[in-house]
Amino acid sequence: MTAKIKLIGVKKRFGSKVVLDGVDLAIEPHTSLVIIGGSGTGKSVTIKSILGIITPDEGQVLIDGEDVTHLKGADRDPLMKKFGMLFQGGALFDSLPVWENVAFGLIQGRGMARGRARDIAIAKLAKVGLGEDVAFLSPSELSGGMQKRVGLARAIAADPEIIFFDEPTTGLDPIMADVINNLIASTVKDVGATALSITHDMASARKISDHIAMLYGGKIIWQGPTDQIDNSGNEFVDQFIHGRAEGPIKMAVKA
């Protein structure tokens, strides 16, 4: 079976700073993979490279077996329709009300009538625990956690084949975080989407993923089934999942 998403030797640097140094990763269709790794290791850059927001310096990105690394402009349109993305910072359109944010891909991307798109948007908002009253507010009137959930509703609004969640539960209370975990798990199980998520929240990672990959030093240093994470035999992974300050990963802080 061809992998839904495949990265081969992806490298990216900004100026002299090497962020990705040959990332290899494969995600099977209808599975959910979580990338873990320290802050600033390039997790978001990895997702943006797959989306084409950032073009890798070297290496290839394959979607459904097709090399899309350098696909640009109109050639990229059909590909983008497969994707849904929750940005780490929300990236909601502050000039549009909440419902239009959620319905944006349906109206602009797919040409759906506004009325119908609004009904779908309100249904998706309900799935992330937001009522109809929120739909007509502006994003700036929402709390951080509410904005995150609107971003999530926008990412899944068009029922994409591949969904990227950049820290879906950061900033949510533990109960709402669990609701969102269930939602992500069910979009993969019931809808058959393929998901690639980033999270620092190990409870969430265990709940939403089939596989976990750890990014460190610009490479994937460990990848395996979620139930193997406690027996990875990798001291970097162990240090990370147990959140220990001591270990092979050194944080650049001055005492």
Binding site: G52, I53, D77, A91, L92, F93, F104
Partner: peptide
């Protein structure tokens, strides 16, 4: 306006929603 959209990743979000 566009600068704020750029730095808050709203422009990237447009491309992920199939909008040029």
């Amino acid at each position: 306006e566009i600068g704020t959209m750029r730095v808050t990743e709203q422009i990237d979000a447009l491309t992920t929603l199939s909008t040029n």
